[in-house]
Design a protein around this nucleic acid. Structure first.
Lengths: 221, 221
DNA sequence: ACTTATTTTTAGGCTTGTCTAAAAATAAAT
DNA sequence: ATTTATTTTTAGACAAGCCTAAAAATAAGT
């Protein structure tokens, strides 16, 4: 039997998973920031997670999830993204509202529930933000994607995901018709602030800041 | 704003609500039994619930929910029963499997989620066990129902609910085709053990123990 | 009415998960 | 290389929820 973890443990596992996608090794401070917690609390929990062999932890040197920890993370992420899909697809939430609610739903542990929900939804591969949904074995389907900030000039591409859950950003993007599936290309980069001018198929164009262009992931066509 | 309660608090509120339907006043021991907890733990929590004015509590004398406590209880029961309905109606769980899972889902606090779920399901009035689902104002639609053990002989009635969530009982009943909506009448009562002989429309008959006949609620036609 | 049994509460302790303040380890700077 | 700054860990405390064992209150029995 796969063991059950507390809500606090699950939140740590998930945050570590996300942070280690960005950096080789995760630091105590980075995790404290991410969880809006204090470094001392982090150290405490790290010891517990290591005792449960979910973590490879070298004091003062940083840490990463173990194989088992990664498996646990993918289960939680699967739950989170399936519920997000459900909320948008079935309950007609808007994509910027779902994250908070899914933060609660993701901790409901029943495997049967999650698998039945998956089937009910038609085994979706991507959540409303374009992030891939792990299947019932924890397999995640990758797709070629790069930040909009790195897309070559004048190359057609389609938006595949937005790497930021802040509802302000998401509703701003929606209001500009920037959603998953939108096709666009970059017409130029402004060197002084690295902002980009993008152009839609309907010939409308728009300037996006470097931060925003970094959060948007695209798949070149 | 309606305050938020912890999962532990919500479980206490719900159990007290159920117990006070049966008796005038709830006792510490009865609640300890119901929650599979110890009397000392109950006393601790009762003080906290009273401090939050959810409870009218006279030490040594018993307790009941306050007006506010009842309101909170109905919100939790609404969540629980809507999720049960969802699980059976949309995810095709069988009615004996849903209780456990709904015990977890009921603690997801978002009001918007619950109201949207309600609409998505078509504003159902009864859950799969036949229990009424409170509406978004906490109003509960009552229906005339009495225990099968009290149904007069030879009077046609329809099963409206089963007041017991034990999955053994529920699957036993299903296997005998005893579900919500089944029509039956009581042919006789056996005096030595108060068991009842029931007869279905298709002329099949069956003996049920007093305990089982007490758990089944019917609406006389 | 007085003893006995039951119920409930208090007292003190444990675990989980959090915090602040201080100490120790590592990294950066001169 | 030695001081200074930063990061991380340890030490000790606290709240929520639970427990056992003992004391106090109520109920039952003769």
């Amino acid at each position: 039997m796969t063991p059950n973890y507390s809500i606090a443990e699950e939140n740590y596992i998930k945050s570590i998973y996300h942070l280690q996608q960005i950096n080789e090794s995760v630091s105590t401070n980075a995790l404290a920031d991410h969880l809006k917690s204090k470094p001392a609390s982090i150290t405490d929990m790290l010891k517990k997670l290591q005792a449960k062999s979910l973590l490879n932890y070298n004091p003062y040197k940083g840490f990463r999830l173990s194989r088992e920890g990664n498996k646990a993370a993918l289960i939680i992420i699967r739950r989170h993204r399936l519920w997000e899909f459900f909320l948008v697809d079935q309950l007609h939430f808007s994509w910027e509202e779902v994250h908070e609610v899914a933060e609660e739903l993701e901790h409901v542990r029943s495997k049967k529930l999650v698998d039945k929900l998956d089937a009910f939804l038609g085994f979706p591969k991507f959540d409303p933000h374009g992030d891939p949904i792990p299947d019932n074995n924890g397999k995640i389907s990758l797709q070629q994607q790069l930040p909009l900030s790195e897309l070559p000039l004048n190359k057609q591409a389609v938006i595949t995901s937005v790497q930021n859950q802040a509802s302000e950003l998401l509703s701003f993007l929606s209001s500009r018709n920037i959603v998953i599936g939108t096709k666009l290309e970059v017409k130029r980069r402004l060197p002084f602030d690295n902002s980009v001018e993008i152009k839609f198929k309907n010939r409308q164009s728009l300037i996006l800041s470097e931060q925003v262009a970094n959060a948007i992931r695209v798949n070149p066509l």
